[in-house]
Measured scan of single mutants.
Amino acid sequence: MKVIFLKDVKGKGKKGEIKNVPDGYARNFLFKKGLAIEATPANLKELE
């Protein structure tokens, strides 16, 4: 799953980066803790 990092996550990504991460990791950790959001076309446009 492609995500946009909202905060730095040690060993995974830095704020503003767009990366592919495992689906479970994104849903169960990154999204729940507010560390990242899904890289949807709308979210990507908002980032620019």
Rank of each mutant, 00 (worst) to 15 (best):
L44W: 07
G13T: 03
R27M: 11
K32N: 07
D8A: 07
I18G: 01
F31P: 01
G11H: 08
D23Q: 14
A26R: 02
I4M: 09
G11Q: 05
V3N: 00
K19N: 04
A42G: 13
A39H: 06
A36Q: 02
Y25N: 04
P41W: 13
F29Q: 06
Y25M: 06
V21L: 05
D8V: 04
F31I: 14
Y25P: 05
D8G: 05
E46S: 09
I18M: 07
N20G: 07
Y25W: 11
E38S: 08
K12D: 06
K10Y: 14
G11A: 05
D8L: 05
K2A: 14
F29D: 07
I4K: 04
P22V: 06
F29W: 11
R27L: 13
N28V: 06
F31L: 12
G24D: 15
K12I: 15
Y25Q: 05
L35M: 09
E46K: 10
K32I: 12
E48N: 13
K45W: 10
M1Y: 06
V21F: 08
K12M: 15
K14F: 12
D8Q: 04
K2M: 15
K45S: 10
G16Y: 09
K10S: 10
V21M: 12
K19F: 05
L44H: 06
P41D: 14
K33N: 15
T40G: 05
F29N: 08
K2P: 09
D23H: 14
N43T: 10
F5S: 01
F5V: 00
R27T: 10
K10T: 10
K15S: 10
E48K: 06
I18S: 03
K2D: 10
F29K: 03
F31H: 01
M1S: 05
K19T: 07
N28I: 06
G34E: 06
F31G: 01
P41M: 11
A39N: 03
K15V: 09
K19H: 12
L30Q: 00
K45T: 09
P41E: 14
E48P: 11
E48Q: 14
A26N: 02
L47A: 09
N28Y: 14
K10V: 12
L30F: 02
A26P: 01
K10L: 13
K10G: 08
K32T: 09
I4E: 02
M1E: 02
E46F: 13
N43G: 07
P22W: 07
K14A: 09
Y25H: 04
G13F: 14
L44I: 14
G34S: 05
A26S: 04
V3M: 02
K32S: 08
E46Q: 13
G24P: 10
G11S: 07
K32A: 11
I37M: 14
K7S: 09
G13E: 02
